[in-house]
Computed example of a mutant assay.
Amino acid sequence: MQSPSAEPAAVSHSLQPGIGFDPATHRFRYYDFVMAAFVTVLLLSNVIGAAKPTFITIAGQQWVYGAGILFFPLGYVIGDVLTEIYGYARARRVIWAGFGALLFMAFMSWVVVSLPPAEGWNGQAAYESVFGQVPRIVFASIVAFWAGEFVNSYVMARMKIWTAGKLLWTRTIGSTVVGQGVDSLIFYPLAFYGEWETSQVITVMITNWLLKVSWEVVLTPVTYAVVGWLKRREGVEVFDTATDFTPFSTKV
């Protein structure tokens, strides 16, 4: 494969010889499905998993963690797939879609919990327990997601150019190390500083970061399989050699 040359917007090479590619007009077959998967994982991992602490026993020691951590890293895996297959600009649109969905979820949760329950209905306490999230934690979660995902996508796109499209595992793991690092550095201090002991904030922050990165490593074969399948069907290779990397845009 030839090295990408500088052109306006993302540079893309057809994987099928003789077939041209125009990134402005090309219609991707599976982009919408990948976007839907990303937003679905993002919302469900925040709604279903975030409120329940669980534990794992290692060498006789119990380690407590939020159940959402089992699924939230899938969002970073899908984010890696988005950037690898469709480029930074299209991944940026998906991140903004997820950001908007998170805002609406937080607003809807607040409205539903605040509405007075009908007489005879006994589920209000359960609703408040699951959906009555602390505003500070919601704010920290949304800000951390926005920053972490954009950093993840940026590092992924840049590393693809540096590696000439090879060594996918270095990009998926490297971008997650940085992106999840930014996510954790923002979320835990914003959400819990002053509520927890500083040492506890740091311990939980590092532990959860390591768990998320470890999940990325474990899921590397899955990422390879999905990326390979999508590249064959989309028929293009996208390099962000001249992309405007500002996060404050939804332009492709």
Rank of each mutant, 00 (worst) to 15 (best):
E195H: 07
G179E: 03
Q61A: 13
S153Q: 12
F21H: 13
S3Y: 09
A91Q: 07
N122T: 14
G20S: 10
T172R: 06
A6I: 12
V11P: 00
T223F: 06
F99Y: 14
L103K: 01
D240P: 13
F107H: 03
W162G: 06
H13L: 03
V134C: 03
L190A: 14
V217Y: 05
Q62T: 07
V222E: 00
V39I: 15
V177W: 09
V155I: 15
Q2C: 06
T246K: 07
V226R: 02
R27G: 12
D183V: 13
L230N: 02
T198I: 12
I142Q: 02
E84N: 08
V226E: 00
L70K: 01
G18F: 00
I186A: 07
A10H: 08
P17G: 10
A50R: 07
M159P: 05
P221N: 01
L211M: 15
Y127D: 02
F239L: 02
Y86P: 10
V204W: 00
R233I: 01
A140Q: 02
V155A: 09
R93G: 04
G132C: 11
Q2V: 15
T203N: 12
I69C: 03
M205N: 07
A191L: 12
V111Q: 09
A89R: 14
I173G: 07
E237V: 00
A157C: 12
A118T: 08
M105E: 10
L190S: 13
D80F: 09
G49M: 01
V201G: 02
Y154V: 14
E195T: 14
S153I: 14
V182L: 15
I95L: 00
I95A: 04
A125I: 09
A10G: 00
V177E: 06
A59W: 13
Y193E: 02
I142G: 04
M159K: 07
P4Q: 08
T243A: 10
Y193I: 08
W110H: 10
V39T: 15
M159T: 14
K251R: 15
Q62R: 10
L74I: 13
T220C: 00
Q124M: 12
L102V: 08
F239Q: 05
D183I: 13
Y154P: 10
S184E: 04
R232G: 11
A126P: 05
T207M: 13
K231V: 00
P221C: 06
A106M: 05
A101F: 05
Y88Q: 11
G120S: 09
I58E: 04
F239M: 01
V77G: 14
Y193N: 05
L82W: 04
T241L: 10
V213R: 09
D32T: 11
Y65V: 15
T176Y: 03
A89Y: 00
N46T: 11
G123F: 08
V177T: 09
M1E: 05
S199A: 13
M108F: 13
G100N: 11
S114F: 08
Y65L: 15
K166E: 07
G60N: 11
M105H: 09
A106G: 06
L82C: 06
M205D: 02
G66F: 00
A242K: 08
A101H: 06
S5L: 05
M205L: 14
S45K: 01
M105Y: 07
S141F: 11
A50W: 06
T172F: 12
R27V: 15
E7M: 05
S129L: 11
P73F: 09
F192V: 05
Q133R: 13
I206A: 13
